[in-house]
Write a protein that binds this DNA or RNA. Structure first.
Lengths: 338, 338
DNA sequence: GTGAAAGCGCTAACAG
DNA sequence: CTGTTAGCGCTTTCAC
């Protein structure tokens, strides 16, 4: 072993194992990939040879030959957000269990459909792909389409899905939050929103629905990226002078909402009497806040698992179905802040 | 385009482009990989052909041939933790900029050196590897050693590094926290710790140092996984009866510490007079808490960036150096809770 | 600056 | 159940 360690890369290949075991390379391949088609005696010999030589099959070569890389690419904006962290985690776990490695690409907000990114990923010939729904350049869309692999878009219900999709309409979600507040008799609305396009879609839906119902939208504050607890606190301080009556506030993330809750407590603002707050995400922060605040639950972990299941089904050879476009259910989790 | 879309995988290959451009395949390869060695005229022809056919080079084939996959593997326990999320994010960004894709493997706590995981990853012939330092099985250690690729371990200073390392001694960090409290005159100590081995190492270092200095360690509470804000709150409630004097508390994560701070406020406990609190991580939560609490800053993002730099240096052909084993500086960030 | 030949290490397909 | 023959699509190497 120490001697072999000097050679770059493990030099042991399938022919070495075959020679050692006194069989053909193909038999070694079968022992590894389809063990049930090899006699127990041969299997034992080959396994011993593999063990002895420390053979690690070259999946690159296997992939080239079989035209299946056993890799899937995943594009998400970031993993610094619990929603995407949970999504990636559950997706990766599920794919790993099925024998697939995940190539993770972090696009940053707004570059999910970036052609260069899609190109390099596709160059690796992934067997499938997960993409955080976004606007694609026409070329990127075409590349994905022509790749001929199952693709699942998540989070956002796009107008023209490439293939499969699991997501929801962000503007519609915002509208639901507005309705929730309207039902409670609110007629003064404020929103704090991160700069990313989906957050802004939620806010737009929220404000539009409020206006449509005849309510006043006092303010829609766009928080500079990254939106943090601190920016929630700052935002509340900034609009404090305008907070003269019973007001409903929708924050595009639980981080912001948590900051608002903290600042409200420090300022002695009555929640929910003067200020009612709703976040987005249903992260631990929302329930652990004191008092806990109302938020919208979106299932990151479930989405990742479902996305994996849908892709694996296709990879197993099943044809497209009606259920390939799935609406992720979200729900408003009501707590003490509203 | 629509016609081609039916064929599985993009069927366009380098020979197609070569034929279209009227050159040899090798010339196409050069246009892509070493453009400066091709005449402008030829380059233009080839680029046009690539564009026209929508050619996406097969990096799998290229990797097999060149024996460089341009992929790096990264093993971390989870990305649901800001520390590792930041690490992975910065590492991925830096590697992407250098033309490398990251294969992410989430090991869960305690399986970082799992042989099966290492094997499948190595099978993909990554050009380099990042591992969250851990105990390896002898076989896994040997496999990594023999892989002949640059490997960097992060977070934990291991006794016998495989290759490069960037990390710190967790027990020593715990001892520093104890010293910090001792210097403030504390002589009653409590620790809340997550189940993972590194968290426990920190707690052990903390408790040992406290005892060595003659202080009393009232309690070392191990919090069931996952350690959350809520478990911090519960933990504090549980030890409340024992909190009869001025006490120093070290939490193995900012999550736990935040829960403690929240619960302390609810219970009307005087912080830091009755209970002094120190967290770990210096995440947003620690600064955004009201009052903000003392914590230990560890640079996840910096570590990821440095790890990438160190690996890239080796990949560029530079030989090992003395500085391949790096101590990550950490520091206690003092705030209102101590 | 460009091309031709010869693999990289594995597996599909077909024998036997 | 096992072996043989051909590649997979690219790049290395060596000519020219």
């Amino acid at each position: 072993m120490a001697a072999a360690a000097r050679g770059k890369h493990t030099p042991v290949k399938i022919t070495d194992v075959a020679a050692e075991a006194g069989v053909a390379p193909m038999t070694v391949s079968r022992v590894i990939n389809t063990p049930d088609r090899v006699s127990p005696a041969t299997t034992a010999k080959v396994r011993a040879a593999i063990e002895k030589l420390g053979y690690v099959p070259n999946l690159i070569a296997g992939g080239l030959s079989s035209r299946r890389s056993r890799m899937v690419a995943a594009i998400v904006p970031t993993i610094a957000h619990p929603m995407f962290a949970g999504l990636v985690q559950s997706f990766t776990d599920a794919m790993r269990d099925a024998g697939y490695q995940v190539m993770l690409a972090l696009s940053g907000y707004g570059n999910d459909g970036d052609e260069a990114l899609v190109r390099t990923l596709l160059g690796r010939r992934p067997d499938a792909m997960l993409i955080t729904g976004a606007e694609y350049t026409p070329m990127a869309w075409q590349l994905l389409q022509e790749a001929g692999i199952p693709i699942i878009e998540v989070w956002e219900r796009t107008a023209r899905p490439i293939d499969m999709l699991i997501g929801f309409d962000h503007a519609e979600l915002g509208a639901r939050v507005a309705e929730f507040f309207l039902a409670k008799g609110h007629d003064r609305f404020v929103a704090f929103t991160a700069v990313d396009s989906r957050a802004q879609a939620r806010t737009r839906g929220f404000a539009d629905a409020a206006r449509k119902a005849g309510a006043t939208v006092l303010r829609t504050r766009v928080v500079p990226a990254p939106s943090t607890i601190m920016s929630g606190r700052e935002s509340l301080r900034e609009i404090l002078p305008e907070l003269t009556g019973r007001t409903a506030l929708f924050c595009s993330s639980d981080q912001l909402a948590f900051g608002v809750m903290t600042e409200a407590r420090m300022q002695g603002l009555a929640v929910p009497d003067l200020l009612a707050v709703c976040g987005f995400g249903n992260f631990e922060l929302s329930a652990a806040s004191e008092p806990p605040f109302t938020t919208v639950n979106v299932e990151g972990v479930t989405t990742g698992r479902m996305a994996a299941e849908m892709l694996l089904r296709r990879l197993a050879g099943e044809p497209p179905r009606d259920t390939d476009i799935v609406e992720v259910p979200y729900r408003i989790v009501e707590r003490a802040s509203t």
